[in-house]
Design a protein around this nucleic acid. Structure first.
Lengths: 213, 213
DNA sequence: TTGTAAATCTTTAGTGAGTAAAAATTTTTA
DNA sequence: TAAAAATTTTTACTCACTAAAGATTTACAA
């Protein structure tokens, strides 16, 4: 049995988040004061801070809510049977999804907060989601390797993380520029991977390495 | 002949930057108020804002000052005759240089500001420096290709940018974690590149692409 | 040399995010 | 049902940042 207190808490956080979404949509992030959100949600300004700490804290929760469907979408669309097309679709899907409900400016604010709020709750929440996406990609790549599409000598953990980081860099570039489209992202990832995959391993690339993130 | 006005401006911006560097070092960024910097430099708080706009604006100038020697350092150290070692040294040198005079927190603040201040002066200054570094790497890679170390079919622009973005992702990870060392960066880039270079080009990787960033 | 124009700085006043703590309120529980 | 615990609101504060008016200094032309 959930106590009244727990239900009220749930209710308030919902109201605050809904108010924030509405007002951000209507007046923009800069044009929305914490006080406005508080009024709209029927609580005091300090309560908003108590629930979400900062404006970016509200935003990261909008993103998390939005991203609950992303993994399903990836599962549906990332069925390619070669590494190249898989990676491109992975990147494209993430970019498209990111802007399907939220504006780029939301992402910029959150990424900035994650960068500074070292190991804070915002950073943790963001990294957790990132982690899930990276695991997904690595899993797909592992399947490809099992099917013989990727040499058995390749470390799929390393490969997956490398491609994920590349995707991430292009994603940040994407949200930092209002002009760039998800087509552009796919296109650039294509260029990145074509070039990288066309380089034959030099002798020194066979350096022995111990596993690490 | 430089007028008195120009000299005073030069002098003031120097004093502000020196005061900022000193106080940041002594009391940390959070522990240093704009007013403190102003007092220490002998100007008013508003003048500090007029000169550097924001706290991050001061920081980016500290970074620019610091980075004036980076390209020389890269030129000296990046003499490898294979792509793999070159890329690793490139990444390592940037990471080492970044923390040789400034703390990681400075980089975090600036990267955050660059992310949000879309197309502002802070972002421009940062991207300009990034651009120089990317051009440097591409130049080196082009030399390698001329020497026959890289297949002629590889687009060096694309390859250079891909590796640079990967380096950038690892660099951000580096400054976002107080634990990570430049050895760790080198190590991870090694893992990234070993995996990427070991993947043989799938048929679909030969997609025709037109040049773009 | 001197007075006016232009540039620059300081003062003043304000907005808004975020924090801390005391006071008021509500829920829980014994 | 009254005391204890949790939670919210009120209050008061710090600090970054901005805008505009007023003061000061430099530049320059007569």
């Amino acid at each position: 049995m959930t106590g009244l207190r727990a239900r009220q808490k749930e209710d308030r956080s919902r109201k605050i988040l809904d108010a924030a979404r509405t007002l951000f949509e209507k007046n923009g992030i800069e044009g929305t004061k914490i006080e406005d959100i508080a009024n709209h949600a029927g609580v005091s300004g300090v309560t908003v801070h108590n629930y979400y700490r900062t404006k970016a804290g509200i935003l990261i929760n909008l993103i998390i809510e939005n991203d609950s469907l992303l993994l399903d979408k990836l599962e549906t669309r990332c069925t390619q049977e070669n590494l190249f097309d898989l990676s491109v679709m992975f990147s494209r899907t993430i970019a498209e999804h990111a802007v399907s409900n939220l504006r780029k400016v939301v992402w910029r604010q959150v990424i900035a907060a994650v960068t500074t709020d070292n190991a804070g709750d915002i950073a943790s929440a963001y990294f957790e989601q990132d982690q899930k996406l990276a695991r997904f990609l690595i899993g797909k790549i592992r399947s490809l390797q099992r099917d013989g599409c990727i040499p058995a000598s390749v470390n799929v953990e390393h490969l997956g993380k490398a491609i994920f980081h590349l995707q991430n860099a292009r994603f940040i570039q994407f949200v930092c520029s209002e002009e760039l489209t998800s087509d552009d992202v796919a296109h650039r990832i294509r260029n990145d991977l074509s070039a990288m995959f066309a380089v034959n391993p030099p002798g020194s690339a066979a350096v022995k390495i111990h596993p690490q993130n």
